[in-house]
Nucleic acid binder design. Structure first.
Lengths: 342, 342
DNA sequence: TTGAAAGCGCTAACAA
DNA sequence: TTGTTAGCGCTTTCAA
């Protein structure tokens, strides 16, 4: 036999009081006498009364729910972000609805609309690769739905943003190699139409410059395809130089992996002959590749920070100027013991 | 200036009709004349009317929302499951609320209650490691909330379950090694108090038996700690046997990794000297460890199947007997080209 | 073909 | 200290 959901009315009827009295008693309103309070709370407990949050949401025009739109859930970086979001949201008493666009613009728009219709109190999002029209996002802003972008942000929109400081990460990685005593550091760069790739290249160059290293354009190779085979063959090419590099800074983990393969095939040692540092989001990269140090993006932290920004917006008084803030997070340089040259 | 949310009333007033007419027109009710329908729909479009799903949920006692409780979001297996859940839920017009227990019993109970209060139409869950008391879950069943367990199930509860057929996976993995011509296959087993470890051991033994291989208990080693260092040292020990194995079936990816390290240190070749197959959920394991074949758990599919079961329950008539079904999914054997001996 | 009214469960202004 | 009433936005029965 199915247990019935108990409502405030049920309690009120049972005790011969009005629903409002019950409502007030349950939230410890000072106007209610201790005696009735006790009576009501006892009965509520006994009947296992559970407040209906849907009714509350309608009444208060507040759902205590956040919406998340990401390109892909089953990606370590994004799932780390979700985890960070859930972490902060949970502490603030909020629920989290997850939707994924699967990199499809159409689906992103659908999700945006669906979350709007669900009257979520705020939205966190990372746009799909296809997204070039921002009407659906501008629309959220028009209705003043608190909105925070993370990672894949839209620069031109007037909203809060949380990103990773790629340039600083690349700078640190390169500096680390320099500190290890490397003197010819190559860079396997990413496609230069992506901001992240450009920023990483810039960080690499800045570190070299700050250490009075010459920048040798022959050591900077763009891996346009993004496959590890490509990185492997490019690394091969570099290794055959008359003055080959003694270190490689890779734009991402796939490139780092390709470089590693090429180096191993040449029977060179990592890191004694050639050190590698790469950007990476692989969960177990430190476990799998003890030879490689890596620069990791703080996904969990990004989720946390983005949610904190969102909560700030949600809790703002309506008439205050909406503040748009951009947070730039530091990357983490994970140095493996075994990758130190010294 | 903030755009206001348009309600049915607004449209009704503007057109001088009643809210009920608007409601009917918007859902293409046959009673409404084509003319008024057009008028209403046009205005709705113009004002960008978006139905308030919260009100709908209250009215219909149906939220079109599913709740998910998992131990950890940022784990590849679980995020793959979530992705599968979202996939099916989205197609069915449902939202997905994610909560994580962080392996804490207390938090799992909180989440269960919170989802109940949110009146989700069904719950998908994988219990935390700490969970030994099932009152909160039984309570869901008492209220006849559709409930499906996946992966970490509770056997004694009368609900739908989706699990992975570990025994069959282990059987396949071992058979694969046999087919590759291996004749002494060791097994790095997991702690035998866990059902999955036991099942995998059973599958291993069954495959040996079916191929008329002798079962040598010296080749079965339990890795109780679950660290790769442990697996490395145990593998070392095995390799020093007078008749060492020519293949290893590892209970999980950490053990497989430890074995790999040990083998490499002994300058043995994988797979020519020793082949390895292990259970694994690492996303890029096939990319990182081209030498190793693996048995992977179908997380995405598990999410899909679990959600399908849940939808079936949700759409059942109340008076039908609630059916409890258990689905056992096949694992995938991912064979790397380079891991074939032949 | 349309409108009036009630109600989903809850809260809060106002009245007693 | 407690009750009455109205209403959040929507649907649906019943009446016109």
């Amino acid at each position: 036999m199915k247990k019935a959901n108990i409502t405030i009315k049920d309690i009120a009827k049972e005790l011969g009081v009005s629903p409002s009295t019950v409502s007030r008693a349950l939230k410890d309103h000072p106007d209610i006498s201790q005696e009735t309070k006790k009576q009501i709370n006892d009965l509520a407990q006994k009947l296992n009364y559970q407040p209906n949050t849907v009714a509350l949401s309608l009444r208060q025009s507040k759902t205590n729910t956040l919406g998340v739109i990401i390109p892909e859930i089953a990606h370590f970086f994004f799932s780390a972000v979700i985890s960070g979001i859930e972490d902060i949201a949970h502490d603030a008493g909020y629920h989290v609805i997850i939707t994924q666009s699967n990199e499809s613009f159409e689906r992103e728009v659908m999700n945006t609309k669906a979350l709007f219709n669900s009257r979520v109190d705020g939205i966190l999002m990372s746009v799909s690769r296809e997204t070039e029209n921002y009407d659906h996002l501008q629309s959220l802003l028009d209705y003043e739905i608190p909105l925070v972008f993370f990672d894949r942000i839209i620069d031109s929109l007037n909203a809060c943003k949380v990103i990773v400081n790629d340039e600083q990460g690349a700078y640190e990685a390169t500096t680390h190699l320099i500190e290890q005593g490397c003197y010819r550091i190559a860079h396997l760069a990413g496609p230069q139409n992506l901001a992240i790739s450009k920023n990483r290249l810039n960080g690499y160059k800045a570190a070299l410059a700050d250490n009075r290293y010459m920048i040798d354009e022959n050591l900077v190779k763009v891996c346009g395809l993004g496959t590890f085979e490509e990185a492997e063959s490019i690394t091969n090419e570099i290794l055959d130089y008359r003055f080959p590099p003694d270190a490689i800074f890779a734009n991402n983990d796939v490139a780092a992996y390709g470089a590693m393969i090429a180096i191993r095939k040449k029977k060179l040692r990592i890191p004694e002959d050639i050190a590698i540092v790469g950007f990476s989001n692989w969960r177990f990269s430190s476990l799998i590749q003890p030879a490689l140090s890596s620069v990791t993006q703080p996904g969990f932290k990004m989720g946390q920070e983005a949610t904190r920004l969102l909560m700030k917006q949600i809790n703002k008084e309506k008439d205050e100027e909406s503040i748009t803030e951009t947070i730039s997070l530091k990357t983490n340089l994970v140095v493996r013991e075994s990758s130190k040259k010294i």
